[in-house]
Simulated scan of single mutants.
Amino acid sequence: MKAVILAAGKGTRMKELTQEKPKPMLRVQGRPILEHIMLGLQAAGIREMFVVTGFKAETIEEYFGDGSRWGWRLHYGRQVVQDGTGRAPEVAREFVGDSPFLLTYGDILVRPETYQRMRERFASGDYAGLLTVTAGEDVSKGAVVVLDEAFDLVTLVEKPGPAQLAELRGRGLLREGGPYWYNAGIYIFRPCLYEFTARLQKSPRGEYELTDAITAMAAAGHRLAGLVIEGRWVDVRDPEVLARLEREEGAS
């Protein structure tokens, strides 16, 4: 299996920390966030990776090179126009070829064993994709994921408001009081994903949304598995999260 890592954004919420480097290159315990992710992928047997770069792309490319120092085979491509998560994987389309691939954002940290659990769950059935979920997050800031009794995807709604959550509860798709599953931003897809990203229209906020492609896949009858992330899941979204990571790691 291959991996595609989305690392094109600047990370404006990091303020002055990302003036000279992209957010995935900020360090946690001496290593860039991106390096932690790649080491976790390597532990799951994934050594061929494609990094989608954009802001300060050369910072990433110069640090990692071809990846041979770590035993990886790294490839790069630049997302010139950053118009949404639905378009970003297109940069890696030739790299993906006919292979299933793990897709992750370059600022999400999980335990290394999470990637292996994803591979095992994906291989457990005839799935076109897999998405990870976590509980306890504010779904209005991400996406709420609706799963059936087999923990396969029914649908997901990006940044749902109170009315949308009420509608899902009214249809029996969400239980009153939760838990609500939050889209954790790490996936596995077969290349059929690209059939759906190619058809995307811009969302109301003016971007091509990866979640719209996933919803379309499910609506077209493709099976997508769900998997709960166990243990650590950190969206390194702002300086406060970065500082907390340093404190927690330093105390352990």
Rank of each mutant, 00 (worst) to 15 (best):
M1V: 10
A3V: 08
A7E: 02
A7D: 02
K10G: 06
M14H: 11
M14E: 07
L17N: 01
Q19S: 15
L26Q: 01
L26G: 02
R27I: 01
R27F: 05
P32A: 01
I37H: 03
G40D: 11
A43P: 03
A43S: 15
A44V: 09
G45M: 11
I46Q: 07
G54V: 06
G54M: 10
F55D: 08
I60R: 03
R69G: 14
W70S: 01
G71L: 10
Y76T: 02
G77T: 01
G77D: 06
R78N: 12
V81K: 13
Q82G: 13
D83S: 14
A88T: 07
P89M: 05
E90T: 08
V91G: 02
E94K: 12
G97Y: 11
S99A: 14
F101H: 01
L102V: 14
Y105P: 00
L109K: 00
P112V: 05
R119M: 13
E120H: 11
F122D: 03
A128K: 00
G129K: 01
L131Y: 00
T132K: 02
E137V: 08
D138T: 12
G142C: 09
V145A: 04
V146C: 08
L153H: 00
L153Q: 00
T155N: 12
L156T: 01
E158H: 14
E158M: 10
E158Y: 14
P160T: 00
P162S: 13
A163V: 10
A163I: 08
Q164N: 09
L173V: 08
L174Q: 04
E176I: 06
Y180H: 08
Y180S: 04
N183G: 06
A184S: 11
R190L: 11
C192D: 15
F196A: 06
F196I: 06
F196D: 00
T197E: 04
R199C: 11
R199M: 12
Q201T: 15
P204V: 09
R205A: 10
E207V: 13
T211Q: 12
T211A: 07
A213E: 05
I214A: 04
I214E: 05
T215G: 10
T215P: 01
A216S: 14
A220P: 07
A225S: 15
G231K: 04
V234D: 12
P239W: 00
E240T: 11
E240D: 15
V241L: 05
A243Y: 00
E246R: 01
R247G: 06
R247K: 14
E248Y: 06
E248Q: 13
G250V: 07
A251P: 11
S252D: 11
